[in-house]
């Protein structure tokens, strides 16, 4: 038993090292344009794995994750350009420009607080209702950007200036993003593998059972929601400092669907699955599809988004449990068939 555990840990360790080495060395091989993209991908991965905490580990299908991404992002952006509050919330307009780490952390904290408030209200709702309410929430926040466009900049968003980016140099910015991702990943990893994570899974697997063994179901759901929101906020804030601009796309449904697609392809509740899915989906959207597009005849009404949505629909209908999960299952089945004596 113990030996087996050590063995799996060893596997993970090797996998982790391969991952680290590949991506740490990437800037040396990649042209600058792709370095930028892959750096952005790390921040997207934070969004995906943080979604997995509430959905995959705790079983609450939150369709409004982008609310927290956007909250973190707008918090960070406004802390860099407080003058946008002039004429509306004047006392905030005088705020000094925050150092970048503070502004990223603040993005996470604000998102976490909203997560707490929204969680307290909505997590009383069960299953379908929770998903329904959270599906509508991004639209509310999205519209607020337009309604209060003096502050949030409406559909054009605003820019925080190159000086406020993680680093002026793209390669350095890549490493910052990488580090932010690694820190987030490690913390989330330890949480979901701790006793708290065990309780999350107990809630997911059987709420009544969890309740009967003394787990305060609602409290753990809320805790999970807050953790998930916090990291979504960190991701959103880091994205703002990475790409220098903020816009309503960070609240919007297409981003939500991208996160869902990544996680569903990778298989939920594993961290590794969504990680894998996130890498594939993000690179596909921003890179492979873009180089594929010019070869599509112009009369066909197809662009990168159309292809992604079509994939999402196909995955949703054909393999709702996740492709990666299904592949793994098949591999396991085959392995079992090959060696029937080992159980």
């Amino acid at each position: 038993m113990r030996a087996e555990m050590l063995k799996t840990d060893f596997k993970k360790l090797i996998l982790g090292i391969v991952f680290l080495v590949v991506f740490a060395a990437a800037p040396a091989f990649l042209p600058e344009a792709y370095v930028y993209l892959v750096g952005m991908m790390f921040l997207f991965l934070i969004l995906v794995i943080s979604w997995d905490v509430i959905v995959g580990y705790t079983g609450q299908v939150n369709l409004g994750h982008t609310v927290f991404v956007g909250l973190g992002a707008y918090t960070a952006a406004l802390m860099q350009v407080p003058s946008r509050f002039e004429g509306s919330v004047d006392f905030l307009a005088g705020m000094p420009q925050a150092p970048i780490p503070v502004s990223i952390l603040a993005g996470g904290i604000v998102a976490g607080f909203f997560g707490l408030a929204i969680g307290i209200i909505t997590l009383r709702l069960k299953g379908f209702y929770f998903s329904l309410v959270t599906a509508i929430l991004p639209l509310v926040f999205l519209k607020s950007v337009f309604v209060f466009s003096d502050i949030f900049g409406g559909e054009e968003g605003f820019s925080i200036g190159l000086e406020r980016s993680l680093a002026g140099d793209v390669t350095l910015r890549y490493y910052y993003a990488f580090v932010i991702f690694l820190i987030s990943f490690v913390i989330i990893y330890f949480i979901v593998n701790s006793r708290i994570g065990l309780r999350f899974r107990a809630v997911r697997d059987d709420e009544d059972l969890a309740e009967s063994i003394g787990v305060n179901v609602v409290r753990y759901k809320i805790l999970s929601f807050v953790i998930s929101s916090f990291f979504a906020g960190i991701g959103g804030a880091a994205i703002v400092h990475y790409r220098i601009t903020i816009g309503p796309d960070l609240y919007d449904i297409p981003l939500m669907l991208l996160i869902i697609l990544s996680a569903v392809i990778g298989g939920l509740g594993t961290l590794y699955g969504p990680l894998f899915g996130g890498i594939v989906i993000y690179l596909m959207k921003s890179w492979w599809l873009r180089s594929l597009l010019p070869s599509i005849p112009e009369w066909l009404p197809i662009n990168d988004d159309v292809i992604l949505y079509a994939i999402l629909i196909a995955v949703g209908v054909l393999a709702p449990e996740g492709i990666w999960g299904r592949v793994r299952e098949m591999l396991r089945e085959r392995a079992e068939a090959e060696s029937p004596q080992s159980t």
Partner: peptide, 28 residues
């Protein structure tokens, strides 16, 4: 286990492969 490593390596190869790929001139 080996498969996982293989997939990761494959992924990395894909990433680099795409980067090195010469861009076709489009819409000239």
């Amino acid at each position: 286990m080996m498969r996982k490593v293989l997939i990761l390596v494959l992924l990395a190869v894909l990433v680099f492969g795409c980067a090195q790929e010469e861009k076709k001139p489009e819409a000239t």
